[in-house]
Design a binder for these strands. Structure first.
Lengths: 147, 147
DNA sequence: GAACACGCAACTATAAATGTTACATGTTTC
DNA sequence: GAAACATGTAACATTTATAGTTGCGTGTTC
């Protein structure tokens, strides 16, 4: 995994959790499925917990689960919860001394801000429920009669 | 300079060149003004030459100048000429084996494609002429009576 | 109290980007 | 034609952001 994988990781994992919302999943399980490390999962999930999307529990039967119904968590919630910026910010100096730079910065900042709004609007039309896999016998069993 | 500075560098430099389109500028001059290296300028400008936005000339009075009028070069032209992606691509595997990943990938790809279109549309409404600094006596002199 | 799971800090590894050096090619000037 | 100049390009070094790793502390269940 390389760049900007936090959002991918989060959406992928939450999508699966949406398929079985009652089930607690450990960082290790999630990490194994996503091909990454448990600490990385905890880092990412920690932000989502702070954002009110996930609940975590310590101890023997601990782990992670969704804090709300899958239908009530949008992709925009996850995106903002992670405080990421898919829309690249313009990294000019804040107070450019040259007029060209100043004009450019102003125009680009405006455009990028609009783009960010647009992205959020689009992401908010999909919920975790839209991602979950069709329920199968196996996963139903896993919910009701986990060992 | 750090990340994604190619577009910033290009727009900044072209904005200045739009203020005095006749004047040849060397990589070294441009690099000095932008606080970077001449080779970096050549790398970036090379792409814009291939895209038909710039002309370069070797030799004694060589350097760079705009291939078209500033009014006829939009920010979108520069953006596409550099083949950059301000809109972060979704870096999932192309053929995800898991249904959650597949659904996610499809939806995100669609959204990002739309965002890219939107960005281009916005960038195409500004030309280099809109960036150039107000003409002063000094710069007029520089055009007509350069040493 | 032993096993388990998160919380978190510190460190390492890796990859993308820029910066640098070196040299070749083409142009103009003398 | 030689010298000066500027681009063209490849190879290498440096920097920076990100992910990955280790270690240990805290809380919870058995």
């Amino acid at each position: 995994m390389k760049r900007n994988s936090r959002l991918s990781l989060a959406l992928h994992a939450l999508g699966h959790m949406a398929s079985a919302p009652e089930r607690m999943q450990t960082s290790a399980e999630i990490a194994a499925h996503a091909g990454t490390n448990a600490v990385v999962v905890r880092r990412v999930f920690g932000k989502l917990r702070n954002a009110g999307l996930l609940l975590s529990e310590k101890g023997h039967a601990g782990g992670w689960r969704l804090a709300r119904l899958p239908e009530e968590i949008t992709l925009a919630d996850v995106y903002t919860g992670l405080e990421e910026q898919l829309i690249a910010p313009s990294r000019d100096s804040d107070a450019p001394d040259c007029s060209v730079e100043h004009t450019l910065h102003t125009k680009l900042a405006h455009i990028m801000s609009d783009m960010e709004d647009m992205l959020l609007k689009r992401l908010s039309t999909t919920t975790l429920a839209d991602l979950r896999q069709p329920m199968r016998e196996a996963s139903l069993d896993a919910v009701s009669s986990a060992p």
